[in-house]
Amino acid sequence: MALSAKHLLGIEHLSPADITTILDLAEQYATLNRQANKHSSALAGMTQINMFFENSTRTLASFELAGKRLGADVMNMALGASSIKKGETLIDTAMTLNAMNPDLLVVRHQHSGAVDLLSQKVNCAVLNAGDGRHEHPTQALLDALTIRRAKGRLHRLNIAICGDIAHSRVARSNIFLLNKMENRIRLVGPQTLMPSGIDQFGVEVYHDMTEGLRDVDVVMMLRLQRERMDGAFIPSEREYYYRWGLTSEKLRAAKNDAIVMHPGPMNRGVEIDGDIADDINRSVIQEQVEMGVAVRMAAMDLLAQGLRAQTPAAVMA
């Protein structure tokens, strides 16, 4: 079973069936990843290049491990500094790498739409590892898998996404995914961090955190970027923490069995209280990291199946 598209650029154009396919396969990889021998041969002989134009530790490590466990030759390129300084354009860099015949390109870029642009210029499969404030599909998929495992289902849940929605690709991908799977989504945060026209995305917007968390099944926190804390978007860290930081007091409004998620890295004491982040009864943050590897293995496996389904002539063309 392959995906309906050649690339994984975002959640927006995936069907619910695609999402379920990825999550079901990821479930199997999650089991594999807990065994002593974690090897599969799904990407054997294939080359995976991780092109990260923006700094990343966790996502890059997750993609690297996923590729290696599937048997691919994995190369990491941190492009934040080198080529950009030499004046090479994104497309030239992509075409140079494309000439080395990779099978999978995993790309992160600081500009929205940059990964779409790149995918039009190469003939391998492209996986979006985050573009600007547009999409971060594997993050939404790993969140979905984590929710499904914790709650036993991925529909008819009340889910609150809290914090900096405006600048978050994680929020956008999650809004698309959770809406496609028929959940009820609330967005919670200060108005300066809500993007324009967000009311047209099938969500309810709350500015009061306790109201927003009332009776939810899932609390999804977002990272507040340091550069947003300088007084331009919020007055201060301490006011933000007081109003929108997740504390056990505010969490009491949610359902008793509500889970707490965070894509990491966390700002403890800014958007989330350290005790909640470490509470093994509420926090599934470590599980998210674990599912991240499994989901990326599943996504790359399915893209590779799509590549293998093409005849060699088609690949050449």
Partner: peptide, 15 residues
């Protein structure tokens, strides 16, 4: 231009 489309595309926008 600010609005649902700019938000969906993740583009910085102005009213």
């Amino acid at each position: 231009t600010s609005g649902a489309l700019a938000t969906k595309l993740g583009l910085p926008s102005v009213s």
